[in-house]
Amino acid sequence: MLRSISLALFLSVIPATAFANSCPTIMAAIDAALPSATLAEADMTKVKDLRAQGEKLHAAGDHAGSEAALNEAKKMLGI
């Protein structure tokens, strides 16, 4: 009984951990694209704000929110 509960808890953590690992990958892609980005100043500010928001949400454990913000920044950058 205890073994099956432990296994269930372990398996429920794996997807969350895998999901959490994509946030830093997205942040790195944004960071790599920023220096050569040709956006209007307002759009560049928005991308940087979304990038910062994504990092803050990632650190707080809100990986879905982090990915949403980071993916919006990626879309604006065209990556």
Rank of each mutant, 00 (worst) to 15 (best):
M1S: 14
M1Q: 13
L2R: 15
L2T: 12
S4G: 05
S4A: 10
S4V: 05
S4E: 14
I5F: 12
I5L: 14
I5P: 11
I5K: 10
S6T: 14
L7Q: 05
L9K: 13
F10C: 02
F10A: 12
L11P: 09
L11A: 06
S12W: 11
S12K: 07
S12N: 01
S12T: 03
V13L: 15
V13R: 13
P15R: 02
A16P: 08
A16L: 14
T17C: 13
T17D: 08
A18F: 14
A18P: 03
A18L: 15
A18D: 13
F19M: 14
F19R: 15
A20Y: 11
A20R: 12
N21T: 13
S22H: 15
S22R: 15
C23W: 13
P24V: 08
P24F: 04
T25H: 11
T25G: 06
T25V: 12
M27I: 12
A28Q: 07
A29Q: 04
A29W: 04
A29R: 03
A29V: 03
I30C: 11
I30V: 04
I30N: 11
D31P: 01
D31H: 04
D31N: 05
A32F: 00
A33V: 02
L34Q: 03
L34P: 10
L34R: 02
L34S: 09
S36E: 02
S36V: 04
A37W: 07
T38H: 10
T38P: 07
L39R: 05
L39S: 09
E41Y: 07
E41H: 06
E41F: 09
E41M: 01
E41D: 13
A42H: 06
D43Y: 03
D43F: 10
D43V: 11
M44Y: 11
M44N: 13
M44R: 15
T45L: 13
K46F: 05
V47M: 01
V47G: 02
V47Y: 04
V47E: 04
V47I: 09
K48Y: 12
K48H: 10
K48Q: 11
D49T: 09
D49G: 00
L50R: 09
R51S: 03
A52F: 00
Q53E: 07
Q53T: 06
G54M: 03
G54L: 10
G54I: 08
E55A: 10
E55W: 01
K56D: 05
H58S: 15
H58M: 09
H58G: 10
H58E: 02
G61W: 01
D62P: 01
H63T: 14
H63Y: 15
H63S: 12
A64F: 14
G65F: 07
G65W: 06
G65Q: 08
G65V: 06
S66T: 00
S66N: 00
S66I: 10
E67W: 03
A68R: 12
A68K: 08
A68L: 09
A69Y: 05
A69D: 04
L70W: 00
N71T: 01
N71C: 08
E72G: 01
E72I: 08
A73V: 05
A73T: 11
K74Q: 08
K75S: 00
K75M: 07
L77P: 02
L77K: 05
L77W: 08
L77T: 02
G78W: 03
G78K: 05
